[in-house]
Design a protein around this nucleic acid. Structure first.
Length: 187
DNA sequence: TAGGCCATCTGGTCCT
DNA sequence: AGGACCAGATGGCCTA
């Protein structure tokens, strides 16, 4: 499935590893046993001790923050954890879809290798800057040397944008941008 | 083999 | 209270 053959991580000690507490009932590993797919595979690192030492963001509000206790039983907590993992996975998938859409939206030299996330963001930023420059250029304003639009140029840009939205709608704007781009390349 | 990139897990915090 | 968001940790895959 995964293009890069990212196999599911078999690894990492699981949340529900028996170790932490004397588990009265339930089979600790029952749910993670037969993951049909990555999404079902429940595994993860148990970093309890490590993390307590270097507790993230403890700077936030006082060090000894208590961990929120959800369901009381281990089984309940385990279930919540699995649900959270699933949601997080879905969230990351959505994020990756958005990255993919962005990749497709920005022009770049096609290679076999797909753009990494950082490359995608950097290219997108440059692309936006370039388009901004073009539009401001054509509308008589200009982008400051540092590339950061001033208030005036932002206002001008917004004005152009709104004008064309009113006149042509979004499709018209797209055509307009394409047209501008073409013009700038010709000149 | 080292380094880059990525997917996933995890627990803390924020938001509704 | 519960979900979303975030960032650290970990380990797998791939390439130079």
């Amino acid at each position: 499935m995964k293009s890069k053959g990212k196999a599911v991580k078999p690894s990492k000690r699981t949340w529900s590893d028996p170790e932490p507490e004397p588990e009265p009932d339930t089979e600790p590993g029952s749910s993670e046993q037969e993951g049909s797919e990555a999404s079902v595979r429940i595994s993860g690192s148990w970093r309890g001790s490590l993390r307590s030492a270097d507790r993230k963001r403890q700077g936030g509000a006082g060090g000894g923050r208590r961990r929120r206790q959800h369901g009381s039983s281990t089984k309940e907590r385990s279930i919540r954890r699995l649900e959270s993992n699933e949601r997080e996975r879905q969230r990351m998938h959505k994020l990756n879809n958005a990255f993919q859409a962005l990749r497709e939206a920005i022009p770049h030299v096609k290679t076999d290798k797909k753009l990494s996330k950082i490359e995608t963001l950097t290219l997108a930023k440059n692309y936006i800057k370039a388009l901004t420059t073009i539009i401001l250029d054509m509308s008589g304003a200009c982008l400051p040397a540092d590339g950061v639009p001033s208030e005036a140029s932002t206002a001008k840009l917004l004005q152009c944008y709104q004008k064309h939205l009113e006149e042509e709608g979004e499709e018209g704007l797209t055509q307009y941008l394409t047209h501008m781009h073409t013009l700038s390349q010709l000149s």
